[in-house]
């Protein structure tokens, strides 16, 4: 279990951030994430990554190291390229015919865009949870067993389904209706089902593209608690519009912005640091403007 849940750390750490004399969008006291201990190794490394959609330069020269078993948050205004960067990590951008990625994305030191790398194999190691819950129109059980089945999992499928649902904190709610359609679940349950589905293929990285943006506040909190627990075993990268969420759950935060140079607009990484630092003493003026709600 985590020694820190997103809810109970408020009072304990607030003293740390009292120095912030702004009227910030995110109250410093609510920054419960982030002073990681730097003991974790870098597992994914993006270096000078550029992404183009046809002629459109979507992301310009982004470099971010992602450390193992930490939660890294990507924040920034709409259109800043944060989802695009996320999707370079499991080669989801390959599905867009005009998309082109330059620079280097390495995973355990392996170039993910190297000649012999099969994106299908990459995605079995780097799972993904999407903005809108997207369960298959199948039963709850079949949703979970889909990934293991195509990966030719040869263990006990019933146990794996139970374990995956357990880890996603959904087992107790669905154990009596595994054969029901996944569409019978509520939005929050569907999203936890999608997390369970992603876990079932035993990836070691989970990419989450605004996983709570379609959910109500209570369901959102449950997802955040879940992320906290999953951090024990998985490296998590989360894209979010919700700065409070990034402040609550993440260890490190990358702030992206739309940058206009010579009339060309592109997404750029403005600042990347420990979450506590980024939200309380940002080094860039744009970051401060964004987190204090002056734009975005």
């Amino acid at each position: 279990m985590s020694d820190r849940s997103p809810n109970d750390a408020v009072s304990g750490e607030s003293a740390l951030f009292d120095g912030a004399a702004r009227a910030p969008e995110v109250d410093a006291a609510r920054v419960t994430g982030g002073s990681p201990d730097n003991t974790h190794d870098v597992i994914i490394s993006l270096e000078d990554v550029d992404v183009y959609y046809g002629d459109f330069h979507a992301v310009d020269s982004v470099s971010v190291p992602i450390r193992e078993k930490e939660i890294t948050a990507f924040i920034g205004p709409s259109g800043c390229g944060k989802s695009t960067v996320l999707r370079t990590i499991n080669r989801m951008n390959d599905l867009i015919p005009t998309a082109r990625v330059e620079g280097s994305v390495t995973y355990h030191g392996v170039d993910l865009y190297g000649g012999n790398v099969d994106p299908v194999q990459v995605r079995r190691h780097i799972g993904m949870v999407f903005q809108k819950p997207n369960p298959f129109p199948k039963s709850i059980y079949d949703n979970i067993s889909f990934g293991p089945k195509i990966a030719k999992y040869d263990g006990n499928m019933d146990d794996l389904v139970e374990e995956s649902l357990n880890r996603a904190a959904l087992w107790d709610e669905v154990k009596d209706k595994l054969d029901d359609s996944a569409y019978a679940l509520s939005g929050g349950q569907q999203q936890r089902l999608c997390i369970a589905r992603a876990i079932a293929t035993s990836p070691d990285v989970l990419l989450m593209d605004e996983p709570a943006s379609a959910l109500d506040p209570i369901a959102t909190l449950r997802i955040e608690e879940l992320m906290y627990e999953l951090k024990q075993d998985y490296t998590i990268i989360i894209v979010t519009h919700n700065m409070q969420q990034a402040a609550r759950v993440s260890d490190r935060t990358a702030f992206f912005n739309i940058d206009i140079q010579n009339g060309q607009r592109a997404g750029r990484l403005v600042e990347f640091s420990e979450t506590a630092t980024l939200f309380t003493t940002p080094s860039e003026k744009t970051t401060e403007d964004y987190i204090t709600g002056r734009f975005g």
Binding site: V120, M128, F130, K132, N134, F136, I150
Partner: peptide
């Protein structure tokens, strides 16, 4: 919906598996 295809690809399914199973 594209979201179902993405779910399938995201789980490491190939294109033919996605067509056949989703």
């Amino acid at each position: 919906p594209t979201s179902l295809r993405e779910a399938s690809y995201g789980l490491g399914a190939s294109r033919s598996t996605t067509v056949r199973s989703v």
